[in-house]
Structure formats: structure tokens, C-alpha cells
Design a protein around this nucleic acid. Structure first.
Length: 650
DNA sequence: TTAGGGTTAG
């Protein structure tokens, strides 16, 4: 409804305040204006708080004129309940509902309350209301079932979902477009993609949402090619179809495809909404594409989507993952300084900022940000502690981290989970406290998973503790036989001590089990273009003579290749030849050639940076007087004037 | 009334 229409109604109401039909469109207007938690930002200047005030005023007017709930016709009653529900005031909605006799409540009144509980309340209460309908012989309709099916999804109950589907069939409601789509969605989200596909193939009433449900389903199980096929076959696509594909690709690690699709969507003239923006930003963070991230930020600003908390948090995370802490902090300050912010949003915002400091090796800021959060009276959650512990680990703040871990349950009321055990094993393991780390694993209240043993193996690898490393590796080979990373870590440890017969044995195991090693690669963005470097083949972007020239200059400055990690028992010369062609070194050579001297060289690598590349990068930052930022699979290294932000602890 | 969404380890 447009604003002038509202004014016309208000004028009518002013002249004849007892004329009930005038109230209905007003409550409807309020419902349509509500932002579902203030996130949509329609832009007419009505905040949810002011809409709730208006709802209460209008409701009070009705009561003052003698219209209590029993005298209000059910259609208007359902509109008032809907208005309260959409503004998340479920108490008022429920109170109003309970002030009428349940036997006179009809389907539309129930539907209004069910909708509110399904969106903002609990699935249990939603289903209780559904049962109450049944007990009172009030028939559910095509408006009821989508919310009931949504509740089955929330409860992760396939059995319940199947029963509700049966009821739809009995009532003949399965042919309804909305009910049909919701049934499909229920099967797809509860792991029955084949049933979803079967329904999709068999139903005649299909619209863009039916396609979107199936596409999202395939993406959720990692079947990007089937999802792409469906997407390509669609004759009509809407913003949800595009967003589903973008987010699915990003979540399946196909960040570059996700970003390309976002641009393709824009070219087709489809306007992104805030969900599209928060779906594409993680893709920029994944590949550390600061240029794309900034471009999308500008775009979000031009669409006035940047004020939405979820967008700000996604931006903050993206900047953190792109190594731009100044921009990250700017987003953080904007969200946290706003009045009346939702506490949940604030917690997520702090979690993200803590993580961003952690990735960038700013341990002191990790701790102060956490303490600031506590000082504001916010309750940390499980994610906070993962960010906090790993953030302190990256900076070697072991005592602080260990103290927080020990106080998690007693002081902060957060139960340590597997993730937290992985973090604390990593924390202790990295600084050589491997016996303690192993003791923690032995005392865990749950069976240690691969993440925990992986953290221990990582610690053993840095500390060169083969005895415990072998124990961890054995467990990992049982648990995740096809993860090549574990074989590589153990191989490296054997190679370092010259036990090449064990290296060869592991290599044979990899071959026999057809396990593919994850080849190392690095990439770099220069003037909007992304360049990929691999160590296995000659680079099309860096010629041999450039590389030799750089190596000569570096050797003059004191560089000596650290070849301890070479897995082959070959000559030192051959080892040096291999080490100098590591992908991040090729990227750096390219960056020095192509980038302006004032520009930071930003390299991203898919694996952990090796000791030699770390030493080399430190020296190159000094010899060539360049600021270098390398993001490896775990964290950032900011190199400047011969030293690294990680202080050689990573 | 249905479909897409922000934070977390190695």
C-alpha cells in the first residue's frame, strides 16, 4: 500500500473512528511495512519500533471504543495478530488470540498466529497450535501448511514431515503451488533430495520457487553441476535463483564462479538484494579478492543496503579475510556504535572482529576486543571462543588462551565442544607443549575427531616430534584416509630427519589408495585481473631470467635456500631449484615487476606457507623495500622491512 | 503463504 492511501484511511478513521473496516487496511499496511527484525529497510522511514507503537495505538483505540476481541470480526482480528506477529511481539499476538474462545477462532486467525510463531517463535509452539486446530475441528488450509512444513524442517523431523505431507494429500492441498513447493523444500532440506526431484518431476504446478528449491537442494549436497544444469534450463529466473546459485557456489569453494555469476546477474539487469550481497561477499573473502570486495561494497552502498547489520558483518568478515583491518574495523565501529542494535547481531559482529584480528596476527587486539565484548555485557557463544582461542594461538599468546579455555564452562557458561578442543590442542601443540596437548585429548569427554588429531599432528610437525606425530597420523589415516595433507605432514617430518625410506613408503600408500595431493598454488590480483601461479610447471607470467635475476639479488643479500622439506633424496642444487619455484615466490617476482612500488603486494596461497618462502618474503620486503601481505590457508603474514607480523610463529 | 542469507579451527 502506498503512503497516500494510508493517509486517506487515517482521515476516514478520524471522521468515523467506530467504522471497523477502516482498521483492516491499516493493520495490513503495518504488516507489509515491517522489516522482520529491522533488516530489510523498505525505506519509508517506519522502523519496527514505531510500527509496533502504531499497532498498539490502533489496538487501544479499538478497545476504548468498546471493541474487545470477542466483538472484532475474525478477519480484522487476524490482521491485528499478523501485525503483532510480523513485529515479533508474539506475546501480544498470543494474548489477543487467547482472549477469544478457541472454538470461535477460525482458520485465518490460527494462520496469523501460526505464521508469527513459525517465523519468530519456536517450531514446537507452531505445531502445538496446529494440533489445537485439529482438536477444535478447525481445518487447516493452503496458508497453514507451508508454515507447518517449515517447522518440521526446523525440528529436523522427516517422520513428522512425511505425516504432514500425507495430510496434505488427504486434504488435496498438495496441488496448491505454495504447499507443493513447501513439501518439496521439506524433503530436500531433510536429506531426501530424490523425493524432492520426484515431486518436481511429477507436479504440474511449478513456478520459479519450485526450481529454486531444487537448485538449493543440489547445492546443499555439493552437486554444483546438477544445480548449474537446472539453473541454465530455467526460463524465468528471479533474484532468489541467482542468489541461491551464488551462495551455493561460494559455499562449495567455487568463489571465482560465484563472483562471475554475481556480475552476470547484474549484466542481466537483476537487482541484488541484501541476501545476494551477503552471499557473494564470503566468496571475495575466500579468495582474498579485495578489489572485487570493495566493488561490491560500493554497489551495496549505492543500493542503500550497506546499513543492514548482516551486510556490515559480511563486509567486516570480507575485509578481515582480505587482510584490510582498517576497513574491517570501520565496519565494526559502524555496527557497534548504532543505537538499539540487536544483541545477537552485536555478538556476531564481535565474533567476526575477533576472528579478523586473529587471522592478521593481532593477538593483543583479539584479547582486548573480547574483553570489550564482555564489558558491554554481551554473552560470548561457542563461535566467540573458537575465534578467541585460535586468534591467541596465531600470536603465540598461549597462557592467555589456555586460561580462557579453562574458564569457558565455569565463568562464561559455554560448554567446550570438539572445535574448542581442536583449538586448545593447536594452541599447546604449536608451542611444543605436546604432552599436555595429548593429555587433553585423552581426557576429552567425547571421542576426539580428525580436527583434534590434525591439530596435534600440526603441532608435532612444527616441533619435529616424530613419536607423538606418528600416533596422531595413524589415527588420522584411519579417520580420513583420503586426506592427503596428513600424509604430506608426516612425509615432511620423515624427510627432515633423512628417513627417505619412510617418505617413499608413504608415497606408495598415496599411490595405492589413489589419493591426490593438493598441489600448491598462489594467486595475485593486479589491476582487476587475477593471476594464478603453480609450482609444478613453468609460469606463463614469470620468465626464467627474471627469476634468476631475483635469486642472484637475494643471494647477495644473504639468502640461503632452506631445503629441509624437500621430499626427494636429491642433490642440494636440485632441491634449491625446486624450492625457488614455489608458487608464492613466482607470485612475488611477478608482483615486483607489475605493481607500483607504493602498492602492497598481496598474495594468497592455498596451503600453509613453508619456512623457506617465509624467510624469502621477509628478506624480499627489505631488499626491494616492498610491503607484502601473504595470506596462507590459515592466516595472514604482513611482511615489512625484513620482518613478519607473525614474529616467525605460525 | 513457498524458495536464497551474516560469525568459527587446521
Amino acid at each position: 500500500m502506498q503512503l497516500p492511501v494510508k493517509i486517506v484511511f487515517l482521515q476516514t478513521l478520524h471522521r468515523n473512528p467506530s467504522h471497523l473496516p477502516c482498521y483492516t487496511p491499516l493493520f495490513q499496511f503495518i504488516t507489509s511495512e515491517s522489516g522482520g527484525g529491522g533488516r530489510i529497510g523498505i525505506g519509508t522511514g517506519n522502523s519496527d519500533a514505531s510500527l509496533l507503537r502504531q499497532t498498539r495505538q490502533l489496538h487501544c483505540q479499538l478497545l476504548l471504543r468498546g471493541f474487545d476481541a470477542k466483538l472484532i470480526p475474525s478477519f480484522l482480528l487476524s490482521r491485528i495478530i499478523a501485525a503483532y506477529s510480523s513485529l515479533q511481539d508474539l506475546n501480544s499476538a498470543t494474548l489477543l488470540f487467547s482472549s477469544i474462545k478457541i472454538s470461535v477462532a477460525d482458520t485465518i486467525v490460527f494462520n496469523a498466529l501460526i505464521r508469527g510463531h513459525a517465523r519468530f517463535g519456536s517450531p514446537e509452539t507452531t505445531l502445538q497450535l496446529f494440533r489445537a486446530m485439529h482438536v477444535n475441528n478447525i481445518h487447516p488450509d493452503h496458508f497453514t501448511f507451508p508454515f507447518i512444513l517449515k517447522s518440521c524442517i526446523s525440528l529436523q523431523s522427516l517422520d513428522l514431515g512425511r505425516s504432514v505431507h500425507s495430510l496434505c494429500l488427504i486434504l488435496g492441498l498438495h496441488r496448491d503451488l505454495y504447499v507443493g513447493t513447501s513439501v518439496m523444500d521439506m524433503y530436500v532440506k531433510l536429506g531426501e533430495i530424490r523425493s524432492g526431484q520426484y515431486l518436481f518431476d511429477s507436479i504440474s504446478m511449478k513456478d520459479v520457487s519450485s526450481w529454486n528449491v531444487l537448485i538449493a537442494g543440489y547445492l546443499s549436497i555439493g552437486s554444483c553441476e546438477r544445480a548449474s544444469d537446472l539453473f541454465d534450463k530455467m526460463t524465468v529466473r528471479n533474484v532468489v535463483s541467482w542468489t541461491a546459485m551464488i551462495s551455493g557456489l561460494a559455499q562449495n569453494g567455487m568463489a571465482d564462479r560465484a563472483i562471475s555469476l554475481f556480475h552476470a546477474m547484474e549484466e542481466q539487469g537483476v537487482r541484488p538484494n541484501w541476501i545476494t550481497i551477503v552471499s557473494v561477499l564470503p566468496a571475495c573473502g575466500q579468495i582474498a579478492s579485495l578489489e572485487h570486495g570493495k566493488k561490491i561494497h560500493r554497489h551495496a552502498t549505492s543500493l542503500t543496503l550497506d546499513g543492514i547489520p548482516a551486510v556490515q558483518i559480511a563486509l567486516l568478515s570480507m575485509y578481515g579475510r582480505c587482510g584490510s583491518l582498517i576497513d574491517a574495523r570501520r565496519c565494526f565501529d559502524r555496527v557497534t556504535s548504532e543505537e538499539g542494535m540487536d544483541r545477537r547481531d552485536l555478538v556476531v559482529c564481535y565474533n567476526t572482529m575477533i576472528a579478523a584480528y586473529g587471522w592478521n596476527g593481532r593477538g593483543v587486539d583479539v584479547e582486548s576486543c573480547f574483553e570489550e565484548m564482555i564489558g558491554r555485557g554481551l554473552e560470548p557463544d561457542a563461535v566467540t571462543f573458537v575465534s578467541l582461542l585460535s586468534g591467541l594461538t596465531h600470536s603465540g599468546l598461549v597462557e592467555q588462551g589456555y586460561r580462557y579455555f579453562k574458564r569457558m564452562r565455569s565463568f562464561y557458561h559455554v560448554e567446550p565442544s570438539m572445535e574448542h578442543y581442536s583449538c586448545v590442542v593447536d594452541l599447546l601443540g604449536r608451542c611444543g607443549r605436546l604432552e599436555e596437548a595429548k593429555a587433553i585429548i585423552d581426557g576429552m569427554p567425547m571421542e576426539a575427531g580428525a580436527s583434534v588429531w590434525g591439530a596435534l599432528l600440526g603441532g608435532c610437525s612444527s616441533e619435529r616430534n616424530l613419536a607423538i606425530g606418528e600416533i596422531a597420523a595413524e589415527r588420522l589415516f584411519e579417520m580420513e584416509a583420503y586426506n592427503s595433507g596428513n600424509y604430506v605432514l608426516l612425509s615432511n617430518m620423515y624427510a627432515e630427519v633423512g628417513r627417505f625410506e619412510r617418505v617413499e613408503e608413504l608415497r606408495r600408500k598415496l599411490r595405492e589408495n589413489e589419493i591426490l595431493k593438493n598441489p600448491g598454488c598462489s594467486w595475485m590480483e593486479v589491476k582487476g585481473k587475477c593471476y594464478l601461479f603453480t609450482s609444478c610447471s613453468p609460469s606463463p607470467f614469470v620468465c626464467e631470467s627474471t627469476l634468476e635475476k631475483m635469486l642472484k639479488k637475494m643471494k647477495e643479500a644473504g639468502y640461503v635456500a632452506d631445503t629441509r622439506l624437500c621430499l626427494h633424496d636429491v642433490s642440494e642444487e636440485e632441491k634449491e631449484h625446486s624450492v625457488i619455484r614455489h608458487s608464492e615466490k613466482l607470485a612475488l617476482a611477478f608482483g615486483i615487476m607489475k605493481c607500483e612500488s607504493r602498492d602492497k603486494l598481496r598474495v594468497t596461497k592455498n596451503l600453509r606457507i613453508c619456512v623457506d618462502c617465509h624467510n624469502f618474503s621477509k628478506l624480499i620486503s627489505q631488499v626491494y623495500d616492498r610491503e607484502i601481505v601473504i595470506r596462507d590457508v590459515n592466516r595472514f603474514h604482513h611482511f615489512s622491512q625484513g620482518s613478519c607480523s607473525c614474529h616467525d610463529y605460525w
